[in-house]
Design a binder for these strands. Structure first.
Lengths: 231, 231
DNA sequence: ATCTCTATGTATAACTT
DNA sequence: TAAGTTATACATAGAGA
């Protein structure tokens, strides 16, 4: 891959080379273009291919050079997907993104740590599960569950609680002990997860349609989440 | 914005200009760098700022020139978020991404899993879910959790516990109260579920490869899936 | 779609202010 | 910490295979 670059022999490093047939090649070379929709379909597609790979390359470089997490998705107008992520899973980055949004949406003043009314369980579990990631034992789950039961009072915190529980499950899955499970058992678990997932998805989509939030509410939400002076 | 480019007077279009003090400025100019982590923190940060804005600019250009949807997120290692999207909402793009994932087929094994989830068990769940719609209350969750905590003793019961937990979540999802939740929250839950699912899947596949149990385990699994008492 | 090739537009590394 | 400068490295438009 990298070797391909070595093939460059002529014009290396921008040095001009007089080929002798400058007349016939006079049209060649990069032209300046306006940043607006390329009308010609063919040209547009060629440009898309080139720039897409360029963009992904840049994204990768940024993540490597600066040790940052980068997630990138591109949808063509015909629905084809191109993606890149610096880690193993774009989904992880998306999760992180949404957690980030949630954190910001809770209160305009993020530095104010007194958010008792929001979700005590949330913060509590968050901390503990983060601390427990590397010293895993089965007891961890019980602990988390116990505190959950105690703190689980109002309906408003249900989702948050369940979400955090899921995090706990996830770190549980990563533990060595989990590997001892039978393949069949794992598949059973997978099946349950997928079932739950399907339910939530259909409900969510239903809710979005009901609320007509595709065009309106989501935008409002994003306005809230987005600060104008972002970069 | 665009006007800034007009400021260039010297070295415009790459033409060399002898400033007279070439001696003192001999060190200037871009150097080639390796694509690997920049060790110097300060330098890394400067590079990050430059390249981040460059990347976002490229992303914007791609979306405009080629009429494609682009979503980009960058997390610094200290948790700061930078984002870009071609439309008005990154969440829309993320949702589109998730819908895309749902529709696409993965590895052969995963195809099997997906087929399976479309049939018998799914129907079973469907029925149960419908029956549970009107008798839900928050207390139920606590109950389930409580018994979970009690039963959760040895590593061997982890799977059972997790399974029960998922059941709890699932019935919770069916309750009317759940619909009050924010769409964003639901998506977060979805993402967490998917993350957990991915982890389990990869572990399971790994285990299957290790044990060379491709053939016989799948049969066992199919038996299991066809059992009505799965949940 | 992907590669080549030229010529040039742009991004950006190292420095300076 | 951010903005500006210089000189160069890299990306890519246009044309063709």
């Amino acid at each position: 891959m990298e070797n391909k670059k070595e093939k460059r022999r002529v014009g290396e490093r921008g040095i001009r080379v007089d080929c002798g047939d400058t007349q016939t090649r006079g049209e060649m070379g990069r032209k300046k273009i306006e940043v607006k929709l390329i009308e010609d379909r063919c040209n547009r597609h060629v440009t898309f291919c080139k720039r897409r790979s360029g963009l992904i390359k840049k994204a990768r470089e940024l993540s490597v050079l600066c040790d940052v997490e980068v997630g990138l998705v591109v949808f063509t107008n015909r629905g084809r997907l191109y993606e890149f992520c610096s880690g193993n899973s774009l989904l992880n980055i998306i999760m992180r993104y949404q957690r980030h949004l949630q954190g910001r949406s809770e209160s305009p003043i993020d530095n104010d740590l007194q958010e008792r009314s929001q979700s005590p369980i949330d913060n509590d579990l968050q901390e503990r599960s983060e601390n427990l990631i590397d010293n895993g034992s089965g007891a961890k789950v019980s602990e988390d569950l116990q505190s959950l039961v105690k703190n689980h009072e109002s309906d408003e915190t249900i989702l948050v609680s369940l979400g955090k529980l899921l995090q706990t499950i996830q770190s549980q899955v990563e533990e060595p002990n989990f590997k001892k499970l039978d393949v069949t058992q794992m598949m059973q678990l997978e099946n349950q997860l997928e079932g739950t997932l399907d339910k939530i998805k259909s409900q969510r989509i239903e809710a979005m349609i009901e609320n007509e939030c595709w065009t309106y509410s989501m935008d409002m939400a994003m306005d809230m989440f987005n600060s104008p002076s972002f970069y």
